[in-house]
Nucleic acid binder design. Structure first.
Lengths: 382, 382
DNA sequence: CAGTATTTGTTCGTATGTATA
DNA sequence: ATATACATACGAACAAATACT
């Protein structure tokens, strides 16, 4: 009778009833359930049936029965803690394996993590949001418990993968960005102070007498914008008018084509005596272009760049460049992540203020020589 | 009474009884157990108690009860398969992030894996067995299901971590070595045919008239021994006596100190007109030493090396070098691993036969000029 | 295909043992 | 030490799924 009326098994009803009380908040961590006998009496069912229901819930880990004492709601914290145990392997997401400054940052990062008792796994995005998305999705699907160190992809453009970072953040995964950051996310980062880098580099050019200063910046990552901001700021402070014709924006694809398609760039340099380059790679390309065009560095054009990578030394004209912390940044990032793992309240953000490394790509100008250099440059171009 | 006699609960006895029959092989995958009633009758206990025992075993996943049919031993294959599901992320273990040819191999490897639908995580050993051990232990502890691509550490020396590879192999993890391999393990590898590389390089020197050929090899990795083997083989075939004084063995630590402590190396080169170098790094160091000592390359000494890395081009005297497949090797390694994942019987071993890239570090000698060059070299040295 | 036997699933009642408060 | 509450155990009945004839 009853069975045909209710359809669902009695023990299942008890399971549902308790589950509901847990969901509604009536039953909370550590609460003791009514004795089996009492539940049986209340629903008019046998104690055996109640026991069956409780045993199912105990299997799931929701309840815990203590012999001679009672059945208790398992501590939520315990349940969470079980899930929330972080892996001792850190997942690092970076843009490139090869090239430029990343290998040096990564090596010191990995070494530091291992010194602190953590393993490291590195994944690469190739600086493509699509690849970034795949990697993040995989980590979420795998329910990874790895703390993460991430280099943002195209941090200058709106990023479509922020929801994945938010998901990971909600799951309690510590995430620390390095080299750059996504301003939309409230997550810590360790990076160079790119505004300062741009500002100090520009101020150095100004201190050498330059006033007609061009700038080449990368549009699709965060650093480009901040370095540009520093450049603007320095000009403003020195009361030099900002001339938009002298500012050239390039993107990652263009950067690779720079030595072939340089007309656009050279146009922006007309009449300038100095140029701030986004990084050493851009400065290196610019040097090659100038050499081909018969523009002398630094006599006709002073070049200053940022990052002080190997390229800065190996450049045909050794580059004056802002020193990127690299190894130090790797160490700091690793240390701060470990600190963050142990104390989720720790503010892990740190920005390095860069120093300048002076080589021979910048030459002072005086008001007398300034016009000459600028016009020499102009002559060569046409 | 009974309880006090037996001590162990009756339901536990049934659990043990069934477990034993499983272990002994009496019960195998898919077998049907006796009906609950029969078991109860045999042990003189109630069906309820038998049910309790069976429910515990079902919880563990050992049994499966089918309503109206019976209790069955769960298919071992199913259990295995559940565990044997491989991750779609491949763990790559390599020696270094930065430097030499590895970034180029890794990049193409990662790209290929992603093209084939697999993610990649890279871990680095720094070519230290201790770090290798830590990484492997961690993977085993985490019960990782990642297929693996591994660059052996110090493959020339007996490796203390083989047991970990065997453990992973037994767990059904596909493992593919690249760049080198551990001869003690019966696991596949994708690498350059180092014997052929040594042989072809030496034969090229012989074809250029050289007979007094020195060799510098690395003692602590596999390639060193195989390249040495190729060198010996070529001399033997050309019926040139092998002169042990002309063979110099170095290790990883020494390699870094080479430019400072070069006396030992130069001793071995006395009276030689050519030298086969273990790799471009060694050849580069040798070039620098020779330049400092006033020994001309290739007039006084021809140098041939192996790997054809960037260094071969950038060397003060561009190096004739055996072409390492690099990108092609990365692609092939990734493809073969994926093949191996899908078909565990697939023989994933592949060895690339290298070609020679001729630059300007080797010069032909004739019987007349041979003595002159050798003695010129000797003169410079003293 | 139908009907019957077998086997597991659910539920009840009852009793005793044992840990906890 | 006693009462309470869970653990184990037995017997019995009916329901529901499956197997067999």
């Amino acid at each position: 009778m009853e069975a045909s009326m209710t359809k669902t098994a009695k023990y299942q009803q008890i399971v549902d009833w308790i589950q509901e009380r847990l969901d509604s908040g009536e039953l909370r961590s550590g609460d003791r359930l009514e004795p089996e006998k009492e539940i049986g009496a209340r629903f008019g069912i046998s104690r055996q049936t109640v026991r069956h229901a409780l045993s199912l819930l105990a299997q799931e880990g929701v309840l815990e029965t203590v012999h001679g004492s009672g059945s208790y709601v398992k501590d939520n914290k315990e349940q969470y803690q079980q899930k929330a145990v972080l892996s001792s392997t850190v997942t690092i997401i970076s843009s490139y394996v090869d090239g430029y400054i990343f290998p040096r940052i990564l090596r010191s990062m990995v070494e530091t993590l291992e010194r602190l008792g953590y393993g490291a796994r590195i994944m690469f995005t190739g600086n493509q949001v699509e690849t970034e998305r795949r990697l993040l999705k995989r980590l979420i699907e795998e329910e990874s418990r790895d703390p993460m160190i991430v280099e943002p992809v195209m941090s200058g453009l709106p990023n479509p993968n922020l929801k994945y970072y938010r998901e990971l953040q909600q799951r309690g995964i510590p995430i620390l960005f390095f080299h750059s950051f996504y301003p939309e996310l409230n997550l810590p980062h360790v990076s160079m102070d790119d505004v300062e880098a741009g500002r100090i580099a520009t101020e150095y050019l100004i201190s050498q007498g330059h006033t007609r200063i061009a700038g080449v910046f990368k549009a699709d990552d965060g650093q480009g914008k901040y370095r540009y901001k520093g450049y603007i700021c320095a000009l403003y402070r020195a009361e030099i008018a900002i001339c938009e014709e002298r500012i050239c924006w390039i993107d990652t694809v263009e950067q690779k084509l720079l030595t072939r398609e340089y007309e656009r760039l050279l146009k922006r340099l007309r009449g300038c005596t100095a140029c701030l380059c986004y990084n050493d790679e851009v400065a290196h390309s610019l040097t090659e272009i100038c050499i081909k065009q018969g523009i002398r560095i630094p006599e006709d054009l002073s070049i200053i760049s940022i990052d002080n990578s190997e390229l800065a030394k190996l450049n045909p004209v050794p580059l004056t460049s802002m020193v990127h912390p690299m190894e130090v940044m790797g160490v700091r990032t690793a240390e701060n992540l470990v600190h963050l793992i142990k104390d989720p309240e720790f503010n892990a953000t740190y920005e390095f203020v860069p120093e300048i490394k002076i080589r021979s790509s910048v030459m002072p100008v005086t008001p007398e020589t300034e016009d000459e250099a600028a016009s020499a440059h102009l002559r060569k171009q046409i």
